[in-house]
């Protein structure tokens, strides 16, 4: 007998469609990325996507689960895109392949695949890569129109796959540190913050180019909010707390701590607020829990950015808060219908 029980009707929405909308929401950011940093990012996204799908299929086969419905759910693609967007586009091809394969196989499928993983797979991939390959992970493409020399798309491809740069060029000539990294290094050398920010790599909001990409992610995030794919609690709590903490430090000592807006539009803050923290599987389910989760992530992000050893804190902050999710959920259970005023 088939399972024919009430309710007999349901909304036509599917997981696949939700994930697809998230992927769509990433497009404005990716387009701006290409505009400012060249098409190399498209290569990493493609590589990551192919690796993710292949790993996903292999793992499903090994686990004796149906392959087709899970490949179509777009969740592996989303992980791949997020990971590709967090690592330098000019990184060697094996870096993204190893990272993607690791996060899909270990962080996702060892836990039982979609819906079961306690850690955000993309961030696990990023953390593994930055810990294992710190050098490759810190050479970012110089925004177009800023470096002395610019690589053509063919030259970029050649570098990604073979590691060979056109004659006479060193890697340092075509890449640079991220704005956050630059800021941290310069602050270490005891330069005042306002002086550092006048360097050409910085722009009015944060980093040249990267700030516009962040705006692209913000636009995509607003679309997700409008279409009710994500709830407002996470991004608002994250950006709010980040602003608050950065604001307090900035007011206390502007020469050491940059303005909160800089933190909003640099690094992966926007991507994190709307796309990484909002992964429903690895974030709390209660409203209060979402607030605590995102606020904690923001605080940790700021601390790691300012005091920590890594250039950006989103990935580690996300993973650290992922650890806390089961407890946050357990201790923020809302009162159920009819049981609110009791025991006051």
């Amino acid at each position: 007998m088939s399972a024919f029980f009430s309710p007999f009707i349901s909304k036509p929405d599917t997981v696949s469609a939700i994930m697809l909308k998230v992927l769509l929401a990433l497009l404005p950011g990716i387009a701006l990325y290409v505009w400012y940093f060249g098409p190399a990012i498209l290569v990493s996204i493609t590589l990551a996507s192919l690796t993710a799908l292949a790993t996903e299929a292999a793992m499903l086969k090994l686990r004796k689960r149906p392959v087709a419905p899970f490949l179509k759910d777009n969740s592996a693609l989303l992980t791949a895109w997020l990971l590709a967007l967090s690592i330098p586009p000019l990184a060697p091809w094996w870096l993204i392949v190893v990272g993607t394969a690791f996060c899909i196989a270990v962080a996702k499928h060892l836990y039982g695949g979609l819906g079961n993983n306690p850690f955000n797979p993309a961030m696990v991939g990023y953390a593994v890569l930055i810990v294992s390959f710190p050098v490759q992970m810190t050479h970012w493409v110089t925004p177009l129109g800023m470096g002395a020399t610019e690589l053509s798309f063919v030259q970029q491809l050649q570098y990604i796959f073979s590691g060979i740069l056109p004659g006479g060029l060193t890697l340092d000539a075509v890449t640079m540190a991220t704005p956050l990294d630059t800021l941290k290094t310069q602050l270490h050398l005891a330069h005042p913050a306002n002086e550092i920010l006048t360097q050409p790599i910085f722009s009015s909001l944060a980093g040249h180019g990267s700030e516009v990409v962040a705006i692209g992610f913000l636009i995509g995030g607003l679309y997700l909010l409008a279409s009710k794919i994500i709830s407002w609690h996470l991004p608002v709590a994250f950006l709010g707390t980040l602003f608050l903490v950065a604001g307090i430090f900035h007011l206390a000592d502007p020469s050491h701590y940059v303005a909160p807006v800089f933190h909003w539009f640099s690094g992966a803050a926007m991507l994190g607020a709307f796309f990484i923290l909002t992964d429903p599987i690895t974030s709390p389910t209660t409203h209060k829990g979402k607030f605590i989760f995102a606020a904690g992530a923001a605080l940790l992000t700021y601390l790691i950015r300012v005091y920590g050893a890594f250039p950006d804190g989103i990935a580690f902050a996300t993973l650290l808060m992922n650890i806390c999710v089961p407890l946050i959920d357990a201790y923020t259970q809302p009162k159920v219908f009819g049981k609110k005023e009791k025991k006051a």
């Binding site: 696990v124 005091y307 650290l320």
Partner: peptide
């Protein structure tokens, strides 16, 4: 791995 994020604090 996640706790490595605290490195340097």
């Amino acid at each position: 791995l996640a706790f490595m994020g605290f490195a340097g604090l």
